[in-house]
Simulated assay, not measured.
Amino acid sequence: MAYEVEGVVARSKGAPVTIETILVPDPGPGEAVVDIAACGVCHTDLHYREGGINDDYPFLLGHEAAGTVAAVGEGVTDVAVGDYVVLNWRAVCGQCRACLKGEPKYCFDTHNAAQKMTLADGTELSPALGIGAFAEKTLVHSGQCTKVDPAAPPASAGLLGCGVMAGVGAAINTGAVQRGESVAVFGCGGVGDAAIAGAKLAGATTIIAVDISDTKLEWAKKFGATHTVNSTDTDAVEAIKALTGGFGVDVAIDAVGHPKVFEQAFYARDLAGRVVMVGVPTPDMEITLPAIEIFGGGGSIKSSWYGDSLPSRDFPMLIDLYLQGRFDLDAFVSETIGLGDVEEAFEKMHKGEVLRSVVVFDK
């Protein structure tokens, strides 16, 4: 018997989202139904609405979520009814060539629920990142449920599901920031500030935040930025070199995903430094760099998939650090809102007025 709930749906490109009746089926083999307690409004959801991911409309939006397992299907042993979980969109398969090489963070065949949630008229929905959590319940693969300490409030914990993990992982996992190193982060939204927080956790001593918004640069200081650069009226590369003895940083993180920003990150690194792209570019963007500069600079250029994270390892670790007072997840929550406020939250996010609006479900 299907569950009937309300959810936020994007029906067509650029159209305002609507609240619709959603039918969530009983979980099948390997699946779980989760009662959603809270779900963050991420820029990726806006990308879905705008057709920036694909055109498989209608979309059931929402993916940065925490909640409680309500039901599990046949063969599910990794989670049980009543478990408090953060949802992830890279449930590893354990069988692909990446997993078999011992690199499950790169899994090439991640799992989603086999069944489809639908509108009341039977129209199949495409859940954002295989989750679709702007709804009172959602259906996911059981591997997308990561158990964490229930002492962490869902409005904060759920943000690990995407943006926060992407940023922290870009610094700690992909960039491999070490104690005493210098880091520059370009773009100080949710992902960029999480990268700053990750660099601080890793022990970086110089953390330079770069943005075109003074408001966002002030936010960055709260997460651990030791210096800020407004690149509207300052050459970011020259400013970063001036702050690092003329050399550049050990790790430069592009949290914007734009060719010009990536170029700045590339030239702002020290010899043998690492450049990390975690911001998502659009399909039409291209980057041109002199080959001799790539060769002569040494080091590495990396893209960061979901912060190169393994949710089963990294989510509980970060929740533990939060509960110890060492990682301020609460600081990412700008406001809590209702299900009907998502469209307004998109506008606030577009204007740079919030880090995260979080939909909270009253139970």
Rank of each mutant, 00 (worst) to 15 (best):
1 M>E: 12
24 V>K: 05
25 P>H: 10
27 P>E: 10
38 A>V: 14
45 D>V: 02
52 G>K: 14
61 L>T: 03
70 A>Q: 11
87 L>H: 03
87 L>F: 06
88 N>F: 02
91 A>S: 05
95 Q>T: 15
98 A>V: 03
98 A>S: 15
103 E>I: 03
106 Y>M: 12
112 N>Q: 02
117 M>P: 01
125 L>R: 02
126 S>H: 07
127 P>K: 07
135 A>E: 08
138 T>S: 10
149 D>P: 05
158 G>L: 05
161 G>I: 04
161 G>D: 04
171 A>Q: 01
190 G>L: 09
191 V>A: 03
192 G>L: 06
195 A>E: 05
203 G>Y: 07
211 D>Q: 07
216 K>L: 08
226 T>F: 11
229 V>S: 07
232 T>N: 11
235 D>K: 08
239 A>Q: 06
247 F>M: 13
253 I>K: 03
256 V>C: 10
256 V>H: 03
259 P>E: 05
267 Y>A: 10
271 L>T: 12
272 A>R: 13
281 P>C: 10
282 T>M: 14
284 D>V: 10
285 M>I: 04
287 I>M: 13
289 L>W: 07
293 E>L: 12
294 I>Y: 13
298 G>K: 13
307 G>R: 05
317 M>C: 09
328 D>P: 10
330 D>M: 12
337 I>W: 09
337 I>T: 09
343 E>Y: 08
348 K>L: 13
349 M>F: 13
358 V>G: 01
363 K>F: 02
